[in-house]
Design a protein around this nucleic acid. Sequence first.
RNA 1: GGGCGAUUAGCUCAGUUGGUAGAGCAGUGCUUUUACACAGCAAAGGCCACAGGUUCGAAUCCUGUAUCGCCCACCA
Length: 749
Amino acid sequence: MDEKFLKPYSPNETEDRIYKMWEDSGFFNPDICLAKNITADDSETFSIVLPPPNVTGTLHMGHAAMLAIEDIMVRYHRMKGHQTLWLPGTDHAAIATQTKVEKILQKEKTNRHELGREKFLERVEKFAQESHDTIANQMRKMGSSVDWSREAFTLDKKREVAVRTAFKKMYDEELIYRGHRIVNWDPKGQTTISDDEIVRKEETTKFYYLKYGPFTIGTSRPETKFGDKYVVMHPDDKRYAKYKEGQTIDLEWINGPITATIIKDEAIDMEFGTGVMTITPWHDATDFGIAERHNLDKEQVIDEYGKLLPIAQEFAGIKISIARDQIVEKLQNKGLVERIDDGYVHNIATAERTGGIIEPQIKEQWFVAVNKKFVIPHSEIEGIPSGSETTLKELMLATVRKGQIDIIPERFERVYFDWIENLHDWCISRQIWYGHRIPVWYHENKCVPIEGREDDVSKCIKTIVSESKPKCEHCDAEYTQDTDTLDTWFSSGLWTFSTLGWPEETSDLKKFHPTTILETGYDIIFFWVARMILMTTYLLGTIPFKTVYMHGLVRDSKGIKMSKSLGNVIDPLDMTEKYGADATRLSLIIGTGPGNDTRLSEDKIRAYKKFANKLWNISRFIFENTEDTTYDANFSEYTEDDAKIKAELSDIITDITRDIENYRFYLAGEKLYHYAWHNLADTILEESKEILITGDANTVSSRKQLLLDILKKLLLVLHPFTPFVTEEIWSSFPQETKQLLLVEKWPNQ
RNA sequence: GGGCGAUUAGCUCAGUUGGUAGAGCAGUGCUUUUACACAGCAAAGGCCACAGGUUCGAAUCCUGUAUCGCCCACCA
């Protein structure tokens, strides 16, 4: 017996060595498995892309859980002999990463404007590179069997080609447009953000009732009211029936007399306040909608930094947060304040990444039109035949509704539908520097007027895929590139196929796309899952994946979301260091149903370290007692009792295999734990002590073969869950020819 | 305002198609018997939130109630 079994199992001395062995073998790469006849070229494929972690720092326990679940699937399929690809990568996470670096700069008493675009980007790239290296190391520590040779980054050269190609196609087909729309402006981050990047926070403020001519209007934001010259009420509101649409009324307002115009619109809630409101179309989405419907003037009141504009006269240049009280005081002096309510509770919109309070603004931005009809030339989407007219929204709905894509657990399908049904056009331009720059170039000569498109009327415009600076083919003018960058999810949306070489028609793309499964957290179902479905159905006419498996969030032992600022983060590296990767993985799998949040404590991880040691000692016992024996897979002289035990294990493996196929990893893990500890160790090993001493020759040899057989199968079936300790034990297993456990075949029964 | 989830041993959670409940930690007792003292074994601990219903049988399915949590939403 190998001397190493005389000491307790030591993950630290084992894991790095084992991972290197795996990596050197090349078997993480499906091409090498084919070349070395590990898999047959007609075997089925299993492919999965790693949800690329943001290069904003380090991986947390949630990532560790994700890696564990995906690695179980991947190792299982590889052992089944399938052509198995797990494709790793990282995400540049535009706003998140830029914000992070800006915070570092702030500590150094400088900022991005002082550095300039180029220098700043160098700085971000350096930070991103360091984060990437940390992440790659953490993934290795967790035992993730990803194919490093295919690693991708959402902002590398190949992905840039994919992004530009996608953008150009969408632009050419008018599904991307540029227009003046009301957007979510983050005064802190100095950029627009999409609806999904908003976090609403409850706030209690005062609510003001102001006299507006014959009306009383309610508002929580008097500082926006300077330009309000439309007063709106519901067409069915009997209280205001005597006022007619378009009627004008002269009245005294904040900075003097104005003429207000009556508007009737159904967006008004008759129950709320007085049922009358004035509108500020430049700074409110509802008001903007009303103004659009009635073709009203829109005026900007607040600038990009949250300061009042000259329309506010003496208040111009003052921050709105400060101006409010001063304005109310003036209104009071003029006798325009009817009353003020305290304790008005409402939700304010803040930017997820910077925490800035969103100020809606009308801006010229790039959008993806989700409701615009177009003809899809090639479609494998059920219910949407090739050549038919459809919309991006319909494509997104059809895939899940028709069951072409399954979401696990099923309840998230409803969440998905609700979101899509309420989806507005997607604002994809960001006024930040880090990210894919919008591949659109302009010059001002207007040499070739293009008609019919709002975004083409003022400038000569060109979208290109190549990187070089274009020259106008009509006049000699040089183009300059749009300064905005793309929403990070635009590039992540292409992930399942941009990683496989698209737009080139690579063999990888043919073989591995659509991917088998997407495994990710339920918190990014909108951000990412929906965008991937949008991009893939549109650009490829197919689905990005057949199944979506959603895992929950990993919280601390008190159920609070882990975050650095709270200091309750458990670092997976610390845990693998203390208890080993196998223990860390098991603790994240067992006791966690799909889509459910899980609480993690160190105790739980420690418990599974004991399990690894238990396996170690089980092996020690078996090896000690079979030192004169070589495992014979075809041994047929089992005693009746032993044959029965063999059959029982066979049933359990069948059961566990079914659990894995049905994504019930938590059950499979628990059953294996239970079998190893309570069947094998407590019962079978205990009775074997007696049998091996007192039994006759046939009984003893049967029992020895049985023990080896059970151990082998247990190692095989446990390998996806606890890859390191099983591989290490396997290296001492008395079988004449064997390969790495990584590529041994999954037991049939 | 709409939707979803949770409620099971002192604590944190499992419980796959309905067959009278399991893991870890904590606590109790026993054991150094050569696989395991970074230990093992054993016992103890639960009207499975509450109230109805379906069923031969419900933690599991249905209805309602309560508490907690999450997500979504352009009531100014």
